[in-house]
């Protein structure tokens, strides 16, 4: 089975992110970048599927050259090869086109991604890549079984879960709960350093949308903090009922 796992290099959750006073750009100085947390589940799932079906796992990222760091993590976890498409100007659609091209070229049977990257939080990559490849896709998957070319998956929806059936080739985005990502061991980390990482030039794709302004949201919270006396609890209930009108 040819498995492509897509990973992204994102600001750490705790990073302080600002915008320039005129709103034209983000301020990301000093921000630490990490492997997108959901992508760890995607890498693990790729490795588990390879253990079951044989084949090869390739990790791919699209972005700044510094993102090579997370490809080393994927290699240390057990990916066979890795590739980076260097570009920092593409919009999400443009990134999807690079992924789709790579998947097509390697004849991927299974494309795995994390359910969202924690920078743009747009939950769109699996469906976009699936549509570009003319493949089915399933997003936010918490259980995946593949037998031959038959795929059975579960995904969380509002108020329950859906059971889905599909066929390979397919694009799947995964979420927490699907597996427990392994920690790479020191020898694997050392070995990963000598595994090859292919560097590719991005094909140019005209953007379909553009960010025109950034702002840091202004907190408009009432911030009334009370004690735990009976009178304070009564006031808390009154505030929620009469001021906020939410109960």
């Amino acid at each position: 089975m040819n498995i492509l796992v897509c990973v992204s290099y994102v600001p750490d959750t705790a990073a302080k992110i600002g915008a320039t006073p005129d709103g034209s750009a983000l301020q990301l100085q000093g921000v630490k970048y990490i492997l997108n947390p959901y992508d760890e589940f995607a890498i693990e799932e790729a490795l588990l599927q390879r253990e079951k079906h044989g084949g090869r796992v390739v990790a791919l990222t699209v972005g700044d050259a510094a993102a090579t760091e997370i490809l080393r993590t994927a290699l240390a976890m057990g990916a066979d090869a890795a590739a980076i498409v260097t570009d920092t100007t593409l919009d999400s659609y443009g990134v999807a086109v690079q992924i789709a091209e790579y998947a097509r070229a390697m004849n991927a049977d299974l494309v795995l991604l994390g359910r969202q990257s924690i920078d743009h939080d747009s939950f769109q990559m699996a469906s976009t890549v699936g549509a570009l490849l003319g493949m089915p896709s399933i997003s936010v998957v918490s259980k995946l079984d593949i037998e031959g070319t038959r795929v059975r998956a579960e995904r969380d929806v509002e108020g329950g879960k859906e059971i889905l059936e599909a066929e390979l080739p397919i694009v799947i985005s995964v979420q927490k709960g699907i597996n427990n990502p392994r920690y790479p061991k020191l020898p694997d980390i050392m070995k990963a350093k000598s595994k090859p990482i292919e560097t590719l030039q991005a094909q140019s794709v005209p953007a379909r949308s553009r960010h025109i302004r950034y702002e840091v949201p202004q907190q408009k919270r009432a911030n009334i903090i009370l004690g735990d006396s009976d009178a304070d609890i009564a006031e808390f209930v009154r505030l929620l009922h009469e001021e906020a009108k939410v109960i």
Partner: peptide, 15 residues
């Protein structure tokens, strides 16, 4: 919202 709501981005379609 971007970055889990730390930034609000105004976005325009180019199509």
């Amino acid at each position: 919202p971007l970055f889990a709501g730390k930034i609000r981005a105004t976005v325009e379609p180019l199509t």
